[in-house]
Write a protein that binds this DNA or RNA. Structure first.
Length: 423
RNA sequence: GGUGAGGUGGGUGAGUGGCUAAAACCAGCAGUUUGCUAAACUGCCGUACGGGAAACUGUACCGCGGGUUCGAAUCCCGCCCUCACCGCCA
């Protein structure tokens, strides 16, 4: 949710949001108009309330002095004021609601470095590293490798739960565990405090990170208890900082968490969902930072470096994209996507998305830091990224490392796996 | 699932109708004193939204929502949450 302070500079907001192909002029215009009405009303309402308070105090004094008649006279003055206050409050609430409705429609302002673009095709490749492996003629896609070596059973998952809930077994399960441990260990080394969060969250948390109310359909909802299965550890971890004021000198806060992630993915079918490409339940290690506004872009670079080091150590060919305005999420100010090349599918697969949300999330979360000079609470910046999401990493590892002897495990993972080949 | 207790500022916790943004203590900040540390003393120490060039000032907020009243942290109603004990159980 965009801080209303931005709307005090309408041309800037409108110009910036054009990058996201979003025409904000009508909304911003309405907000400003409503805002002025709201302030006018607030002045009137507060004057009336101040008078009420004064009369009440008077009545109290008169009563104590035993001047009952005078108190009665004072009381008589209140009924009209009371009616006015009631009406002011109703009007005020109505305007506030309207402002809010408009406010939540505004996407986050993109960072200056974000380029104009319509969609994925316009994203800027900022880095590309690693050789794309040359596979033999009879190379298999990962879902066939998974069946061949009996390490991931998609059909069994359908039996137990449904499509998109694969069962990992044997070395497949061990590989999952190894990846999780590897990612967590790397994050710890980089100074992130590890968190084991709840996998279900309440409404307030869903709201805090922006999944609710609009993206409700993305999450599994346990209606009896009104709890939501988390779509990412970002939700519980970032909500740790909901409604808190932190000390500036303690920034940045760095957290990492492994969690299973649950996504309904309603409406996505077809080729892209084959195998591990898109699942309803998957594993991910997330990194989250709470940063000082002046430092948050350094923080973003820091996180990108961290994710980069992970894909490099896994020896996967990858590229980093700076998302264009048209492909960025509603909430992000700047996003880098990581894609690894899955050699049998011959596809780039997104395995991480690292974003700076600036104060967009913090505004909803009421996450503030106390400025060291002014001592005033200010909105902090929140950032997060996958480090990393497992399924597509596994897909690429299986496909890229397939050999006639079996699937080679990258060196860095061998100590975590306890084996160096799947055969 | 049953029964009971309770939700007040960063923390503990007082407050049962007006003089309460809310005692006291702890933590925190600034200062005084002091060989150092420690201690002692003094002051400050909520948030949001308004008005004002500013000094300053108004309003709201004691889990959330409604009600009673001239006036509500305090009384009434509804909801949410937490804790304790019992039962069941990883």
């Amino acid at each position: 949710m965009l801080n209303l302070k931005f709307t005090r500079n309408p041309p800037l907001v409108i110009e910036k949001l054009q990058k996201k192909n979003f025409n904000a002029s009508a909304i911003v215009g309405n907000i400003i108009e409503l805002y002025q009405q709201k302030n006018k009303l607030q002045v009137q309402a507060e004057q009336a309330k101040a008078e009420m308070n004064k009369i009440s105090a008077e009545v109290g004094n008169l009563m104590r002095q035993g001047k009952k008649d005078e108190a009665e006279i004072a009381k008589a003055r209140t009924s009209e004021i009371k009616e006015n206050i009631k009406q002011f409050d109703l009007d005020f609430a109505a305007i506030e609601e309207k402002v809010y409705e408009l406010q939540v429609q505004l996407p986050n302002l993109p960072h200056d470095s974000v380029s104009v673009g319509k969609g994925a095709a316009d994203n800027e490749i900022v880095k590309r590293l690693g050789e794309i492996p040359v596979l033999p003629e009879n190379a298999l896609p990962h879902w066939e490798l998974a069946a061949k070596y009996n390490i991931i059973d998609f059909e069994l998952g359908v039996k137990l739960t449904g499509a998109g809930f694969p069962v990992y077994r044997g070395k497949g399960a061990q590989l999952q565990r190894a990846l999780i441990n590897f990612f967590l260990a790397e994050a710890s080394k980089a100074g992130y405090e590890e968190i084991q969060p709840p996998l279900m969250v309440n409404e307030a948390s869903g709201f805090g990170t922006g999944q609710l109310p609009d993206k409700e359909g993305q999450m599994y909802h346990a209606t009896i208890d009104n709890l939501y299965l988390i779509p990412t550890a970002e939700v519980p971890v970032t909500n740790i900082y909901r409604d808190v004021i932190v000390e500036a000198k303690n920034l940045p806060y760095k957290n990492t968490a492994y969690s299973a992630c649950f996504r309904r993915e309603a409406g996505s079918y077809g080729k892209d969902v084959r195998g591990l490409n898109r699942l309803h339940q998957f594993d991910k290690v997330e990194i989250v930072q709470i940063a000082h506004p002046e430092k948050s872009y350094e923080t973003l670079e820091d996180m990108v470096k961290h994710v980069e080091s992970l894909v490099q150590k896994l020896e996967l060919p990858f590229r980093i994209l700076r998302l264009c305005g048209g492909d960025m999420s509603f909430t992000s100010a700047l996003t880098y996507d990581f894609e690894v090349f899955s050699a049998a599918q011959k596809m780039w697969l997104e395995v991480s998305s690292v974003s700076n949300f600036e104060s967009f999330q913090a505004n909803r979360l009421k996450l503030r830091y106390r400025d060291e000079t002014t001592k005033k609470p200010q909105l902090a910046h929140t950032l997060n990224g996958s480090a990393l999401a497992l399924p597509r990493i596994v897909a690429a590892l299986l496909e890229n490392n397939q050999t006639p002897e079996g699937i080679k495990i990258p060196k860095v993972l061998v100590p975590y796996c306890g084996f160096d080949i799947i055969n």
